[in-house]
Design a protein around this nucleic acid. Structure first.
Lengths: 210, 210
DNA sequence: ACCTGAACACCGTTCAAGT
DNA sequence: ACCTGAACACCGTTCAAGT
């Protein structure tokens, strides 16, 4: 039923520490790929380049991943899971101002923890959008849908246009602020506070625990 | 010196109405390309598809454009020119609150007039970024640079972090709001007013002519 | 001036085969 | 389980040649 759990072969014995086959080639592929995708873009990075850096053949990559897009999905998955959990949490809360403030704060924490993936997603929207809208059966996991769900939790589909626009800008602002000013912050929490305050102002809520 | 003015051949006689060679193939390529690039993304759209829709050969496209990237540049150029003019204007004004408000208003007008190109740029950042950072000698025309110049006119590189973050979000908000809510607006100026008000609030200025 | 046909190197993907 | 070598169809690009 759930066929996307096992990646290489089947591992029927079940190696104690999970399914990683000791040689950590799979993870090395992931990290080299994310690095190169960020540098030259997803489409401009060829599997040959990735393979060469790892001293393996192009074909070897296909033992660990079933396609180039599957490599992307592998390091995108965790972010999607986090965001899904946040949305589910938000949907279960009473739609109060406090909930909306916490939603933005938790979203900013997720973004802060996965800047590399966020940068990739932001820069390769077109590639990623195609990628996700085909194979994925679970429509709830499409990025666009997740974005909309998050916005709806902040403003609701029946809210006046102004509120919906500002809610969208609030969500987007968290992402791009973190990406653009990652390096420029002095104190560690400085950027986080600014980002959250700005997003909350846009969404029309007081920042939580201000 | 300026070698990017003439596109097909040289047209030494100088056809009265410009350099268009009557058969409007060049423009048909542009419109089909923008359409397909928006639908399937820049990289996923092949020159074969474009050529087939126009009933010509792939090779024919190379008579009108010197590469696939050159097609993008052709419908990107006008937007870049507009933005350059806006930046030049802004740099020549006194750095008052009124100037900053007008900067945002004029930017939102430019964006509103070129939604198709904006959508393409937003979704294909990675492709476009590569594209522009190589061939282009005129560094001032890089998109990233234009974005930064615009932000600097709103906040200045020495402004406190908070102001710089909010200036960046202000600029980005104009683009994404127009793209996301293009269709949802009731009255014609309704969205424009909301977008401008939001951007001005972020940049810390009163909206012009409110 | 405007376009075709055929070739080029490169790409992502597959698969039988090796260890 | 993990990887190679060789082949596949397709891509962007070039170029001599046609009208």
């Amino acid at each position: 039923m759930d066929d996307e759990a096992a990646s290489p072969g089947e591992d029927p014995q079940g190696t104690p520490s999970g399914r990683r086959p000791r040689g950590d080639t799979r993870e090395r592929i992931q990290s080299v790929a994310l690095e190169l995708f960020a540098e030259h873009g997803y489409e401009k990075t060829s599997l040959r380049e990735i393979a060469e850096r790892l001293d393996v053949t192009k074909a070897a990559l296909y033992y660990h991943f079933k396609s180039k897009e599957d490599i992307v999905r592998s390091f995108t998955e965790d972010y999607v899971t986090d965001l899904d959990a946040l949305i589910a949490w938000g949907a279960a809360q009473p739609p109060t101002e406090e909930t909306r403030g916490l939603l933005l704060e938790r979203y900013s924490v997720i973004v802060g923890h996965r800047l590399g993936v966020m940068r990739f997603l932001e820069q390769n929207q077109a590639a990623v959008h195609q990628l996700m809208s085909e194979g994925q059966r679970d429509r709830q996991k499409l990025f666009r849908t997740q974005f909309e769900r998050l916005c709806d939790l902040l403003a609701g589909p029946d809210a006046p246009l102004r509120d919906r626009v500002r809610a969208s800008v609030a969500v987007v602002s968290v992402g791009i602020s973190c990406l653009l000013f990652d390096k420029d912050a002095g104190a560690p929490g400085e950027l986080h506070d600014i980002v959250l305050e700005t997003a909350c102002e846009l969404a029309g809520v007081k920042p939580p625990a201000a």
